[in-house]
Amino acid sequence: MADLTQGRAIRADYIALTQRRRLYSGLLLTVFVLMMIAAFDILESRNAGGFLDGLSQLPDFPIGLISEAWEKADRLPGHFLTFLPSLLETVNIAAASTIFGALAGVMLALLSTRGLARWPRMIPLFRRAMDILRAIPEIVIALVLIFVLGGGPVPAMIAIALHTAGALGKLFSEVAENADLKPVDGLSSVGAGWFQQMWFGVLPQVAPNFLSYAMMRFEINIRASAILGFVGAGGIGYDLRNAMTWGQGRFDQAAAIFLLLFATIVIVDQLSSHYRNKLSHAEH
């Protein structure tokens, strides 16, 4: 009899608990929906064109672009050749900045990982430095550097490399935290310096993970380098902006650039995911 009442009490408690949880989720959902509606309302009110008007015009540009590219399809191969050098520049910016960013990221990561750091007291300093590097959008550094260094690939490369150093540094340090410290101890017992300990004790363990993160970053950096080109840092983004400002009649060029950019991004994504799979399989 006592068991039964106890059971009832538990049941009542449980139902009350679920009801309260449902109420909370329902409230949260309502707040969320209201926030989305309010956000959309504000965004639309501050936009030049309204949403519904824009929606009806949305297909106009792609259709115009495709039909114009179709009419002048014979010119497309020529355009591909014309824009190939700037595409190469965009890819080069991404690759060089990934290399420099990854090198700096490795240093920052090792210097800010507990157990590995050269100066353990400086760990918070290097961590904050990485936070700041990650927080600064590339465009900020790129625009300032363009003012100093003039247009061209170098400002974009430096800007993306700095951001990459911060982003990769954080991921690298998460990997390095899980590295086995025994090789490091062994190396230090035979008198190896810090650099030797890292080079022979830590890097061989973490290299596959580091490489796979760096490749993922390369994918992201190609997109970033195209965008920076659009705001004036050279490469295919710059050509795209010019093609867009010429407008109707020159859309075949824009179409060619769109296709090149799309193809590059898809190819790099595929290649990198292929090699990343290989790396993670080789590891196990």
Partner: peptide, 17 residues
């Protein structure tokens, strides 16, 4: 890429957030 979407959308919706 986001860049291309931005350009395509900007033609329809005009500049703005």
């Amino acid at each position: 890429d986001a860049l291309i979407w931005t350009i395509v959308l900007a033609r329809a919706f005009g500049p703005g957030p």
